[in-house]
Design a protein around this nucleic acid. Structure first.
Length: 113
DNA sequence: CCCATGACTGATT
DNA sequence: TAATCAGCCATGG
């Protein structure tokens, strides 16, 4: 009867971790997964965010690790990627000339609120 | 059970 | 820095 998908079951913890990322900072999918107690489930985090309908959710603060070393926000939809970038820049997150994010500066460290 | 897909990631080249 | 490859995990056909 209760055959609920794992993504639905883990959603609460994942969304909570996402909401814990402070403004002006960014976290990676893998980081959020670990924070949610689901190490190694980065793709699960991505799935949950894609299906999340909560407009209050700061999903734009979650980026792929690739976004750190080079330009790639992981979002398939070009419009969504552009929206994410605008939202981040609005919070003070700056991108390099190549379109990458300096995680060593804006990457969130749970010990740095 | 096999296979394909994906808002991922680390290692290699 | 960028492009590839190979693992990885959950979901759905």
């Amino acid at each position: 009867m209760s055959r609920v998908a794992l993504s639905e079951e883990s959603a609460p913890a994942i969304l909570k971790a996402v909401r814990s990322v402070p403004r002006g900072k960014v976290a990676t999918y893998g980081q959020v997964a670990t924070l949610a107690g689901l190490p190694g489930r980065a793709r699960l985090v991505a799935r949950v965010l894609r299906l999340a309908a909560d407009p209050k959710l700061p999903w734009h603060r979650i980026v792929g690790r690739r976004a750190a070393k080079r330009a790639q926000v992981s979002i398939p939809d070009p419009e969504g990627a552009e929206l994410q970038r605008r939202r981040l820049e609005r919070e003070g997150v700056r991108f390099t000339d190549t379109g990458a994010i300096a995680l060593d500066i804006y990457g969130w460290l749970p010990t740095d609120p």
